[in-house]
Design a protein around this nucleic acid. Sequence first.
RNA 1: GCGGCCGUAGUUCAGUUGGUAGAGCCCAGGAUUGUGAUUCCUGUUGUCGCGGGUUCGAGCCCCGUCGGCCGCCCCA
Length: 424
Amino acid sequence: MNKIISRIKGMYDVLPDESWIWQRVERIAEETFQSYSYQQIRFPIVEETQLFHTTIGEATDVVEKEMFSFHSRKGLPLSLRPEGTAGCVRAVIQNNLCNRGLTQKLWYIGPMFRYEQPQKGRNRQFTQIGAEYFNVESAHADAELILMTARLWKNLGLPNIQLEINSLGTSQSRKAYREVLIAYFQTHAELLDEDAQKRLLTNPLRILDSKNPKMKPVIDTAPVLSDYLDEESKEHFQQLKSILDSCGVSYTINPKLVRGLDYYSKTVFEWITTDLGSQGTICGGGRYDGLVELQGGKPTPAVGFAMGVDRIVEIIKDLNLWQQSNESKTYVVVDKSVSMEFVYELSERIHEALPHLKLFMNQNPTSFKAQFKKADKMGAQFAIIVGEEEVKTGMITLKSLREKEIGQQSFEFTEFINYMNQQH
RNA sequence: GCGGCCGUAGUUCAGUUGGUAGAGCCCAGGAUUGUGAUUCCUGUUGUCGCGGGUUCGAGCCCCGUCGGCCGCCCCA
């Protein structure tokens, strides 16, 4: 026997006992987005590394230490995408989707890659579904986007998830706040932990997010971002809140919610669950008005989010929220004496006439007893019995496995088709 | 990247101070030859994650490695 090569760390296989959950999540997401007039966009899994540096920010953990990077054969630095927004924005610019003030509502789904220490709800390859709304500056876009996510949770039937929102202000006001914050932390430098020291000059806002209890006092008395918001951002945030209020979407304002990617401005939000342990964010997003320009496009306001499909599937499994619908299957019980030519000729005629029927053909006929046992175990509704008698008469014998009073019936082929069509 | 716990049959797990590898479930076959549940009988299954070391002898002790889980961190 050869050595078995196993899956690499942080990657996973989705097996049939679970894939139906993924499919249903994806289907519901697609339907929900379509109902808000979003269209799907697909873009590459591999991009130039520089795209992510520019978009996400040099000082972020994602680009500093979490990318799967390599070189093309010609030496160009490439990376597997660690998130979707960078590539989506690139595609929008390159294909002129937002020229002349055109708005775009786009959604995507696909694998993302981050080189992290895996744990529950955190894999190195993971699936995100995201949406981006381009070229609407007002908070109406932010609000609609958040309302759409709220509807998605409702459509998925997810309980216990809470919305947190915050405003980071325009890039100018954030810059001003940043200066104040750095100055504040510098005067209390002795209270900062090693991590915070490192971040002080690169990404001071993230210090606010620290869970280190020793730093809680310094953080609690730190200047608050909302005090430094410009009028425009305050107004924008106010509008968002008032729409959410009027639609009955409850939220908490978390002034320390800053998010780890540099491109956000004004609105940021997260949907959080307590059912997953420490990886509790199932969806996060916000506004990124400067990003399109940063990537070389024309100034284009935009807002978007991404959600972790892995985590949502995990919740559905852990809480046992969904039952697999027992789709009607029909098992073909074959007697050993019957030629396979006969069996396949028959089954192909059935497929032709009943394209939606799920037929399970026994390829390896054993005893009737064993075949019926198998049919029962896989939850088949019907068994079609093909034995010497059926070959002789050309009739189709159908047995209802779930309704005993119906029992076994014999049909001409066309009668059989009619009967099966009436079943659903 | 750091710290802790863990890895034994398809699966869930047990395995004593180091002394021949175990159970339930599942699976396969059978209980008057064309028919499912239950029950009963019979049976298969392992490089004990992998590699090295200590030992007369290692599933058990030591080292390394790979993988999983939990926390930090990060984020979806």
